[in-house]
């Protein structure tokens, strides 16, 4: 088929995540971009479609002991332990700087009890710039926190339903763990509980061992694996959740896991993701956001697509 090559300026990169309009599908993966001010010198964050904050819990958290990261082949393990400034400081000090971005903001919400999640989500209803809560029920690095909600479909449905009641203005996004036997089960549970969107995947629980000391390298013993090493699994999980849960229910997916280049991002779009989150790659090259955006436009132009939405979920399986 002959394609009519379009000019990049004619390409519409905008997407819609459950009613929130984004200029393009790119966003930050929670925990990899702080509260925006950290990266201000290194990249124009206005290039993003939306900003996703680091996890916010009711009380501030110091996080885990050192060492918190270790590099592995084509990836890294982290066990930060949801270190964050807490809800009060977030509202007072971080929200004003997020407002200056002029982007839709999704706040990643963490907690150890249902009440914790509800308290944060309730407070965010009064913040205009916040358009959604991303429910972190899949952090692998906090004991007795988050993850136990994320691996059991019943628990996922229950906590999503509870949050649904307090997220009135804000959209409710549920971030899924890959550390489950069937991610479509937890995805379906989140949708049954009332999720507006799904984001996947969080990191894989993993371990690296110091063979001389015969001890784990991370102080937390285990950490979450991210980076290009996990991308093929993430693409597969997005494909499965898209075909079996998201498409039938008309629920958008925010895809993430090892995206470094536009070619990676395009795999996620073709597999069914509407939004794209960049995480580990930002540590290496903060400007990759701009490069990925422009290269996606170039791909669309070369294939004669005027809008990015024309390629979402268009994977052909013979």
């Amino acid at each position: 088929m002959k394609m009519n090559k379009l000019k990049e300026s004619e390409i519409d990169l905008s997407v819609d995540i459950a009613g929130v309009k984004l200029a393009n599908p790119l966003m930050t993966a929670s925990g990899t971009c702080g509260y925006a001010d950290e990266y201000a010198d290194f990249v124009d964050l206005k290039t993003l479609g939306a900003f996703v904050t680091k996890s916010i819990s009711v009380a501030p958290r110091e996080g885990n002991e050192y060492p918190r990261i270790v590099e592995t082949r084509a990836g890294m393990l982290n066990a930060i332990g949801l270190a964050n400034v807490g809800l009060e400081v977030f509202l007072k000090e971080k929200v004003p700087q997020l407002e200056s971005l002029g982007l839709p903001v999704f706040v990643n919400v963490a907690g150890t009890t249902t009440e914790d999640y509800l308290k944060v989500a309730e407070a965010l209803e009064d913040v205009d710039i916040v358009k959604g809560c991303e429910l972190n029920i899949s952090c692998p690095n906090v004991k007795a926190g988050g993850i136990q909600f994320g691996v059991d479909p019943n628990a996922v449905e229950n906590i999503t339903a509870e949050l649904r009641k307090v997220c009135r203005k804000n959209k409710l996004i549920v971030k899924l763990s890959p550390n489950v036997s069937d991610i479509t089960a937890t995805a379906a549970a989140a949708v049954n509980g009332g999720a507006d969107a799904l984001s996947l995947i969080n990191t894989f629980t993993a371990m690296a061992i110091d063979i001389e000391k015969r001890a784990p390298i991370l102080a937390n013993a285990t950490g979450g694996l991210s980076g290009p090493a996990i991308r093929p699994v993430a693409v597969y999980m997005v494909h499965r959740v898209y075909t079996q849960v998201a498409r039938p229910n008309n629920i958008p997916i925010i895809g993430m896991g090892g995206i470094q280049y536009a070619s990676d991002a395009l795999e996620f779009l073709l597999a069914g993701a509407t939004g794209l989150a960049i995480g580990t790659a930002l540590f290496v090259n903060p400007q990759c956001i701009v490069e990925i955006r422009d290269d996606i436009a170039d791909y669309l132009a070369r294939h004669g697509h005027g809008s990015i939405t024309e390629i979402i979920g268009t994977l052909k399986i013979g």
């Binding site: 050192y66 982290n78 930060i80």
Partner: peptide
């Protein structure tokens, strides 16, 4: 000296 991923204050790994 600390192990760090980003050096920009976001990865939160180089704690003291």
């Amino acid at each position: 000296e600390r192990h760090m991923a980003c050096g920009m204050g976001t990865c939160q790994s180089c704690i003291v």
